[in-house]
Amino acid sequence: MLLRLLVAAQVLYVLGVAGAGYATTAYGQHIWLATSPVDLHSLQYESFVRLRYAAAKAPLTAWHGAGPPQRRQAVYVLLNAVPSPDSLATVAGVYDKTLSPGAGQAVLRGWVTDVYSRTLGLRYNLERYYVPGDSPLRLGKTSPAVRVRVSIAPWGQARIERVALLPATAAR
């Protein structure tokens, strides 16, 4: 009996994770992030590609914190996502404390990977993109630049909603 309760709780929990995935898209804030060209070679061996975001680098002048930034530190990245909903988001500031974004802004959480003399390296845990079987990335041979649609839930989770090739959006 106790085992059944425990197993039911586990099934509900996994369903809850899936629900959080749907809810993040449904209720979250949506932004587009630009990346450098994606290296598709890894798709031959693995089911994911590594995305290198333009927002993964921020000038040190964008840092707002009590002390100097440290490697592995958790940070809150303020992104400008104005004016049109289709435009790519850019880093407005990197904070060590949570903050409430203004209109046309979003906050994405991340970590400091490196501290250089002029810039900061950032990581969002969104770098691994598991490429679905029907994705255009599966057909491509060259290294395309892509933009990534990210949903940020009000409760602080984030997910990659989809990935679109950049040239297609330029033509639109």
Partner: peptide
Amino acid sequence: FGAGIILTSQLFQLVGYDVSGLLAWVVA
């Protein structure tokens, strides 16, 4: 159960910012 939590978050490309997702695994 652990594989389910990890693969489901991967399925939705979902990122959590604390360990609460996996903590349920230890609790179970």
